[in-house]
Each structure stands twice: as structure tokens, then as C-alpha cells.
Design a protein around this nucleic acid. Structure first.
Length: 642
RNA sequence: GCUGAUGUGGCUUAGGGGUAAAGCACUUCCUUGGUAAGGAAGAGAGCACGGGUUCAAAUCCCGUCAUCAGCUCCA
């Protein structure tokens, strides 16, 4: 009894040197020892059977802890690799970590496998689980580790070990399978119980497209069977909200082979939603001191050469004309920045004129790679609520905060406030070719932005290498129904382009200075935002943005005139209204309106006409009774604008 | 761009070497019915496109295009 272990709650245990976290868990309670999956010793995750040799803090982690679940999934990845190796002995192993919602493992197969092979792989995994092999951590010198992996012809592992700085390398062994791994892991394969292989995909070795593409098998694992079932069910449910399916079914948009990839057509409902959002955004921005611009969809290549886009993104632009043949070369615009800069440069600016806030509902064109296009989320022609604020250095902080405030307001109106998170995107100092400007200037810009973010107490994650070439960004991120993350809104600080474009203002002392520029979006790209709205609301958009807000259904042909009168009144009041006076049964017409997710149905028959009322049906709560048209109007007025 | 999968009337799908089947939608007729599908009749595709194999291709092979998932990229 010479070692003191301190638990999270402050309790201490005295143990002999060499005791393991599992021993301690057993002392605490039998139940805990059964549930335990790994431990945290002095802040570091370790196996349950690691021997403790000095005083430390200790936390026993179970599958209820996020780290515990990760260990389970990481072990599942090893079991997967083990199973695949058993079935396909010549396969080469890549890497296999736990990820959000599951795990994956990358393999280099001699011959491609398909999802149909999952059945036998899962069966093999079950066999490994049933065998309940102990999982044992082993240490090796770098030299013997390399020799061992070379012996197995595991070329990817050899590469990984070669890059490791540590000379003492850890492996995990289970039965006939050994794997390079830092751990920790479950103590035996039998502890893994409920798992499922979910999908198959290609993935570049070490995430670089210059490398070979390996085969990635995705799977997931849970503590309990019902958790696994619930998760799989949730995925299926989420897919039903997929804007790419629902948006087409509900006739918001379509695509057409002859028109091309990444070029969706907004149908009347989609165009109506689009326009509703544009009007809302432009009105709100006008209130906040923005001036609207309308600039050309294309410009000579000279403009993009100056901005730096030509050099970095020429391949991603739609270019018209050929430089080699002395044509005038034009390109469709991939962004609005330099166009608005030219407007700024029209006329000498005083410090008294700043800040200048330009906004534009701006159609942009980017020649995305063929594999990137996705529904309305990633397209080749899109419309951005794009704006640039040109200000003095002193004004930057306040203008940044105002921009952020506007995006908060937009997120709130869309109902996205709780679905987003913030990403502070910085430069990758290892990859300076991708950026303009000096180190000092970057440090200044990033420092300034960090100060602003920290001042307002914004929670964010940092992303190295995700900055724009001209400055750091605050990206507002959101997931689609498949859990894929995308930037929905961005605010960027730019200290470089104003000098590139020779934009100046005359300061109080009479000298000419370069202003700072904030690049920002308020609601993001309209197409993408619409996609996320459709997914968020499963097509049942809030009243104010619903393309068709009210539909009036006639009960008999005798009521058609009354129906049209009501429709006329609603339209005059500014509501998007349609009528259904077909000779169908009312149940049938209601069903259709309900499936189209129209917020309100007004059902009108002889009784309503006699009493000069309408029977209101709400898509959510069903029949809500008879009211006068005035009453109905005052009710919907409250929902008419966010 | 890369890996894998998919492509059958407007939609959802069945079929699958011997010139296509169903439901919904659509059209017409009957029904004027009170809160999620009334009834009957009818029309509509040559199976994404191009090429090849074959006596014969929607079915097998190759290419292209498009769609989906993932990777990479995203000013």
C-alpha cells in the first residue's frame, strides 16, 4: 500500500504498485467494474488493465461517457479490421478511428468489395466477438515495429510507424490480429456487442488526393441494442427530410440532364420561397444602413488577376474567350468583392463617409468539380446575400459586431439559432502559398478577430487552414440531414485587398489611408439556406415563408363564388393564396393540401356561406373551427412576418 | 476529379436475352359529398444516351451523361 489514487470526487485509495484501474473499479463497486471501459489517469485515457505505478488522479469511464463510447467504437474498428483480414488475407490495413456516431476503417483490397460483402464480414466480426479474445497492449521499439509490419507486408503501417517520433511504439493484440494503435481499448473483444456496418466509400490515404484511394467501411456501435436500433431508425427518419428528395417531391426545384449538373431549376414554389427570403433580407439590410448594388455577372480577366482569384481559382471559373488567341477574356464572377470595390472607388472618400456598407443579392458562378454537386447545397450557379463593409480600422470592431448581430437575427428568424456552431477559420502557417499578405499582417488580423470573438464571449472552434486567402473568417456551420457540415454564413476580416485595389479614404489629418474591409453574408447562399430550411421543417415551412400560405377548398360547386371572393380578399391583403374548386370529395382535397404542407386550409360549404364564416383547418392541429374572415385575417397577421 | 452504387411512363417501384407490369398521378364520364384517398372507363414508356456482343438487348459488355453516398476541394 504505497500509492495514492485520487478519484474525481476527491476520495482517495491506497493501492499497491501495479494495481490496475479495473482493480480499483472492483473495489468501488462490482457494478462499476462491469460497466467500466477505460480510465483517465492524470488526464490521459488508458486501458483498464494498465498498471499504476505512481500517485495519480483517476477517473473510471463507462459507456455513458463520450470517451467510453469512443473506446467501444475504436475497438469495433479493430474487430472489423481483424474480420476483414481473416476473410481477405492479402488486404492491407490503413487506419481506423472512432468518429462521431461510429467508426470506420480504411482498407486496400486487391479486388473491390461491395456492400453485399457486409453480411459475411459482420458474421466474421460476430465470431471474433464470440471468441472473446483478450485485447492486450504491447510495446515495441520502432525498429522491431517496422520489422514486424514489413513482415506482414503492411506498407501503410510501415509508413505510419516511420513518421512516429516516439521510439517506443504501442500495439494492440487480439487473437491472431495485431494492430498499431495508441489505444485505449476494451479489455476483450467479447465486450463489443451491438454494432452494424453502415456504408462503403472511397477515401484517400491520409486524406490527400495525391495518394491512393482506399476502401473505407463505415459502421457504428452502441452499448445497448435499442440504442443501435434507435440510431439506425433516426438515420432513416432523417433521410426522409432530405431536401434533395423532399424538395423535388414538393416541387421546389428540379434538375434536368440537358441543362446540366449543379444547375437546379427553381420551380414556382422554390422561386416564391427564394423571393420571400430575398425581400426579407434586403429590407432588413436597408434598415441597418446597407446600400444595395447591382453589378455585372462577368468581368474581364484583368479584374480577377488583380484580386488574386485568377491565380488561385482560375480552374474553378467559367471563362469566356481564349487568352492565347488574343481574345478579350471574360469570366463569370465567382464572387462580388471587386465589383463593389469599384463602386467604392467611384469618387474620393472621406473618413466621414465611412463605414460604407454595400449589399447585393448576388448571383455567382463557380465551376465545382463534378463529384461535389449536391441538390441545392452545392451548385454551379448560386445567389449569395453578399456584402462588403468598408471602414476605418477604428470602426472594424463595431462593424464586425453589427454584422454578427445581423446574422444572429437572420438565424433566429429562420429558426436555426440552436442548430449552428461557430468556426474561427485561420490561416495555415505551413502553407503560405494559399494566402496573400505578410505574417505580421496575418497575426494582426487573426489577433483582432480573436479579440472581438472573445470580447463578446462567443463559443467557437478553431480551424487551421480554412481562412480565405485574404483573411480570417468566422464561419457559421450547420449540418444537413446526413450529418454533413457546411458553412451557411460567413463574416471575414480583410486587411489586404483595399491596398491591392488602391481603395483609400482621406483621414482627419488629410492623409490617404487604406480602409479595412469586412466581407459578410447575412443569410448565406439562398439555395443552400432553402435546402436547410426544407430539411429543418421537413417541408412544412413556417407560415411567413410558405410558398402557398392559405388554400381555400370548396365543398360543392354552389360555393365556388364565395371561395373566389375570400381568395380575392386574402390576396389583396398580401397572402399567397390558392383555391381548390375541383369536383372532388373534401377529404381528398384536404389530403392533398395536407401532403403539400400548406399551413392553412379554409373549408367552405353551404353552412359557412350562410353564416358568412370559414372553417379553418391548420396543417398541424387539424380542424380548428369556424371563424369570420376578419378573425382569420387578424390571426394570420401575427404570423405574417418574423 | 476520385471510389462505389443507381438510372424502367409525371412519381414510386416490379421484371429481366425473345420487343414491358403494377399502384399513385393524368384525361373523360358518373358522383355535389363536411375535415387525410367515392366509382368507372381511357390514354401514356420500348426501359438515361451512344456504341458493341448476339439470330435476337431494357436485360450482357464498353463509353458518356445524370442521380446518390463518401473522399478531396470550396474565393
Amino acid at each position: 500500500m504505497n500509492i495514492v489514487v485520487t478519484l474525481k470526487d476527491g476520495k482517495t485509495f491506497e493501492i499497491n504498485s501495479g494495481a490496475t484501474p479495473l482493480d480499483i473499479a472492483k473495489q468501488i463497486s462490482e457494478a462499476l467494474s462491469r460497466m467500466a471501459v477505460c480510465a483517465r489517469v492524470n488526464g490521459e485515457l488508458v486501458d483498464l488493465n494498465m498498471q499504476i505505478t505512481k500517485n495519480c488522479s483517476l477517473e473510471i469511464l463507462t459507456l455513458r461517457d463520450p470517451e467510453g463510447l469512443e473506446v467501444l467504437r475504436h475497438t469495433a474498428a479493430h474487430v472489423l479490421a481483424n474480420a476483414v483480414k481473416n476473410i481477405y488475407p492479402t488486404v492491407k490495413l490503413g487506419m481506423g478511428p472512432a468518429i462521431k456516431n461510429g467508426f470506420y476503417y480504411d482498407f486496400d483490397f486487391d479486388t473491390p468489395i461491395s456492400q453485399e460483402d457486409f453480411v459475411k464480414i459482420e458474421a466474421q466480426m460476430q465470431a471474433i466477438i464470440k471468441a472473446d479474445f483478450p485485447i492486450v497492449r504491447k510495446k515495441m521499439t520502432k525498429k522491431s515495429a517496422l520489422a514486424k509490419m514489413k513482415g506482414f507486408n503492411e506498407t501503410y503501417k510501415v509508413e505510419l510507424i516511420g513518421d512516429l517520433k516516439d521510439s517506443n511504439i504501442s500495439f494492440y493484440e487480439q487473437g491472431n490480429f495485431i494492430e498499431l494503435c495508441a489505444g485505449p481499448h476494451l479489455t476483450s473483444t467479447g465486450k463489443l456487442k451491438h454494432f452494424k456496418l453502415t456504408s462503403l466509400a472511397g477515401a484517400y490515404w491520409r486524406g490527400s488526393e495525391k495518394n491512393k484511394m482506399l476502401t473505407r467501411i463505415y459502421g457504428t456501435a452502441f452499448e445497448k441494442k435499442n440504442e443501435l436500433d434507435e440510431y439506425l431508425m433516426k438515420i432513416e427518419e432523417a433521410k426522409k427530410r432530405d431536401h434533395n428528395k423532399l424538395g423535388r417531391e414538393l416541387k421546389y426545384f428540379m434538375t434536368e440532364e440537358k441543362i446540366g449538373q449543379g444547375l437546379p431549376l427553381l420551380m414556382p414554389k422554390g422561386a416564391t420561397l427564394f423571393n420571400t427570403l430575398v425581400r426579407f433580407v434586403e429590407d432588413e439590410e436597408a434598415k441597418r444602413g446597407y446600400q444595395l448594388t447591382k453589378t455585372p455577372f462577368m468581368a474581364k480577366s484583368d479584374l480577377y488577376k488583380l484580386s488574386g482569384h485568377w491565380n488561385l481559382y482560375k480552374d474553378g471559373m467559367f471563362v469566356i474567350g481564349n487568352e492565347d488567341e488574343d481574345d478579350e477574356v471574360l469570366a463569370l464572377r465567382p464572387m462580388t468583392c471587386p465589383f463593389q470595390y469599384m463602386i467604392y472607388k467611384n469618387g474620393l472618400k472621406s473618413y466621414r463617409d465611412l463605414p460604407v456598407r454595400y449589399n447585393e443579392t448576388s448571383t455567382l458562378f463557380r465551376n465545382e468539380s463534378s463529384g461535389e454537386m449536391h441538390g441545392l447545397i452545392r451548385v454551379r450557379q448560386f445567389t449569395l446575400s453578399e456584402g462588403h463593409i468598408i471602414c476605418t480600422p477604428e470602426q472594424l470592431e463595431e462593424e464586425f459586431k453589427k454584422s454578427l448581430d445581423l446574422t444572429y437575427y437572420m438565424l433566429d428568424c429562420l429558426g436555426f439559432s440552436k442548430d449552428v456552431w461557430f468556426r474561427f477559420s485561420k490561416r495555415d502557417p505551413q502553407n503560405k502559398d494559399k494566402y496573400v499578405g505578410s505574417d505580421e499582417a496575418w497575426e494582426k488580423a487573426e489577433g483582432l478577430m480573436k479579440k472581438i470573438l472573445d470580447d463578446i464571449g462567443l463559443k467557437y472552434v478553431e480551424a487551421i487552414g480554412d481562412a480565405a486567402f485574404y483573411g480570417p473568417k468566422l464561419d457559421i456551420q450547420m449540418e444537413n440531414v446526413f450529418g454533413k457540415e457546411d458553412t451557411i454564413i460567413t463574416i471575414q476580416v480583410d486587411m489586404f485587398l483595399s491596398s491591392t485595389f488602391d481603395m483609400t479614404f482621406v483621414d482627419q489629418d488629410g492623409s490617404k489611408k487604406n480602409p479595412y474591409i469586412i466581407h459578410r453574408s447575412s443569410i448565406g447562399c439562398y439555395e443552400r439556406t432553402m435546402a436547410l430550411l426544407i430539411e429543418k421543417y421537413a417541408g412544412a415551412l413556417p407560415f411567413w415563408m410558405a410558398p402557398e400560405q392559405v388554400r381555400i377548398l370548396s365543398l360543392t360547386d354552389r360555393n365556388i363564388e364565395y371561395v373566389n371572393q375570400i381568395a380575392e380578399r386574402l390576396k389583396n391583403e398580401g397572402y399567397r393564396t390558392d383555391v381548390d374548386v375541383r369536383g372532388e370529395k373534401i377529404g381528398f382535397k384536404i389530403r392533398e393540401a395536407q401532403l403539400e404542407k400548406i399551413p392553412y386550409m379554409l373549408i367552405v360549404g353551404d353552412k359557412d356561406e350562410d353564416m358568412k364564416v370559414v372553417s379553418v383547418r391548420c396543417r398541424k392541429n387539424g380542424d380548428i373551427g369556424q371563424v369570420s374572415l376578419d378573425e382569420f385575417l387578424s390571426k394570420i397577421k401575427k404570423e405574417a412576418r418574423p
